[in-house]
Every structure is written in structure tokens, then in C-alpha cells.
Design a protein around this nucleic acid. Structure first.
Lengths: 152, 152
DNA sequence: TAAAATTAGTTGAATTTGGTACTTCTATCT
DNA sequence: AGATAGAAGTACCAAATTCAACTAATTTTA
């Protein structure tokens, strides 16, 4: 027998959906309008910028950004066309390839980062008290970790 | 000058993204495999089922599900083709139209609801303590409310 | 009341995404 | 070594989403 959600649980669940959807949409349009980037683009730029040599294997990058391999492949292709990224083949494992940040990609990230971070603060971090935000983060870590465990 | 995110804030923010992305993906594939529905389908069925006469104006429905008008229009079109919904014209405002739940749509919802709710419990509600989940909900309500205010 | 502005909703083309099959290379097993 | 299984990526195709333009009805305003 299914145990249904109580009205309170229902409300919390819908709030979660709404918060994510609205926030994502907001941040995305900010980036899009001001810098011509999507959030997906931005996250890839960020991940690459954090690594040694500003490069990552495709599958690492897919995992880091929670994207399917297929999607990442398309995405990197587009960003390559846009000049933000380059592909490099991997010599140790000749099946593999790297996505590498170009100078233009780095510039784009540097330009876009303030917009993005400001948006995250204005619409998420600063809307909550320190402890509320911390609680949100901890709950989300549990949820994400639990789903990850399950699927492995 | 941009105030960057601290490592802790960064972690919380990424956890939020991860939790939502993984959860959504999980719930979506469950529904898809077991009932041939997407989450978007499901949410529309739910919203309609909650109203008097199981019908809603397109724009109400778009707002409730946080979808663009265009997207909703396509979506309803697909669901109409699938027999889950019907469109009815609105006599008070002849520009408008209603999306109405069909019997088949209702049946589909009844069949899918246990799958969905079980998934939400297993991957979200039951992973957290009561107070953690409550805190998550409240934080999200604040965030969603704040973004909604801004845009009006 | 005629014209202009707004609102509801749809449409079609272009973009993005997701699933799966495939190619190529690496690792394992006997 | 040869055969087989598995992994990395891409390519292709179908489905979903966005964007902009459009129709039609309503509301505003002058």
C-alpha cells in the first residue's frame, strides 16, 4: 500500500521543484543575455578551469557535470565550434580525448563569473540565513549521496 | 567587486544542483519505464486532477507547472494525441481553452501515482529526518518566493 | 467607437537532449 | 597469442524544448 505524502510533505516537495526551476531559469537567462552562455556551458568552463592544464577527459567531465555522455559530446562540440574549447586526443589511452579550455573560453568564464555568482547570491545565498543555507546544503548532500549509492 | 562563494557555500550550491538533477532523473526514468510517462506529463495530470471538473485554462496550467506557454502547448498536444487529455474551448473568453483530463488520463495517473510517490519517499523524504526535510522545504519556499517577487 | 495595445494560445523551424548502436582501443581470460 | 569482454567516444535518430512569428479575441484609450 502506498503511503501518500502529507500536505506538508507535498508542499515541501513542490517548493523544492519550484526553487530549483525558478533559480535555474533565472541564472540561465542572466548568463544568456549578458554573456551568450547557458548554465551548461558555464559549468563546463568552471570545471575545466579548476583542473591542472585546464583539461579533462570527456567522461570525467560528464560525471562532474552530471550529463550523459551523449549530451556532453554534443555540448562540447558546440562549444568547440564557438571557440571556447578544443579537443585533444589522449596519448595514454587512445580511445580517449580531452576537452581543453581555450584562451577564449577562459576569457568568457572570467567575464561571466561575476554575473553568475552575483545571481547565486542574490537569489539563493542571501535569501536565506547562514544556518538555513547550511541546512539546505546538508540535506541536498544526503539526497545526492543516497541516489548515487543506489545506482552503483 | 564580486563577492565569491566560500568553499562551503560552493559545496552547498553544488549539492543543491546534484540533488535536484539526480532526483529528477531518477523519478523520471521510474515513471518512464513503468508507465511510459515523463515527469512533465505526470505533473500535468496531477494538477488537473486536483481541480473542479478536472480542467484548467492553459495559462493557469502553464503557471502551475512553471512551463512556458509554448512548451505547455506542445506538451498538451502530445498528451491529447496520447488520449490522456482533451482540449475544450472556453466560452467566457473565446481566445482561451481548457485542458481537460480524460478518463484514460485519470487512469494513467492512478496507475502511476504509487510509483512516483514511492520514488519521492525513497529518494528524498525518507533519506532525511523530519526536521531536515522540513528545513529543506522552508528554505526552498523562501527561495522560490523571492524569485517570484522579483519578477513581478 | 475606431484604433492601438494586450492577452490567450498555437505553430513551425531551429536547437538541444536522450537513447542506442557503432567504432576503436584496452584489459582480461584461457 | 587469440578470443572476448568492457570502456571511451561519437554519430545517428527520435523526442523535447525554445524562440519568434502568428491568429484571434479582448481591453484600453483617445
Amino acid at each position: 500500500m502506498t503511503k501518500w505524502l502529507s500536505p506538508d510533505e507535498q508542499r515541501s516537495w513542490r517548493a523544492f521543484i519550484a526553487a530549483w526551476t525558478l533559480l535555474n531559469h533565472q541564472l540561465n537567462t542572466d548568463l544568456q543575455i549578458q554573456h551568450g552562455l547557458t548554465i551548461a556551458d558555464y559549468e563546463i568552463l568552471v570545471r575545466l578551469s579548476e583542473t591542472e592544464g585546464r583539461r579533462m577527459r570527456m567522461s570525467e567531465l560528464a560525471e562532474a557535470t552530471l550529463a550523459s555522455r551523449s549530451r556532453l559530446s554534443h555540448q562540447v562540440g558546440r562549444m568547440e565550434t564557438a571557440g571556447l574549447l578544443a579537443r585533444e586526443e589522449c596519448t595514454e589511452d587512445r580511445r580517449g580525448s580531452f576537452a581543453v579550455l581555450t584562451d577564449a573560453g577562459w576569457q568568457a568564464l572570467v567575464a561571466a563569473a561575476p554575473t553568475h555568482v552575483t545571481g547565486v547570491r542574490a537569489n539563493l545565498v542571501d535569501v536565506l540565513s547562514k544556518s538555513e543555507f547550511k541546512a539546505l546544503g546538508e540535506a541536498c548532500q544526503k539526497v545526492a549521496a543516497s541516489i548515487n549509492l543506489e545506482s552503483s
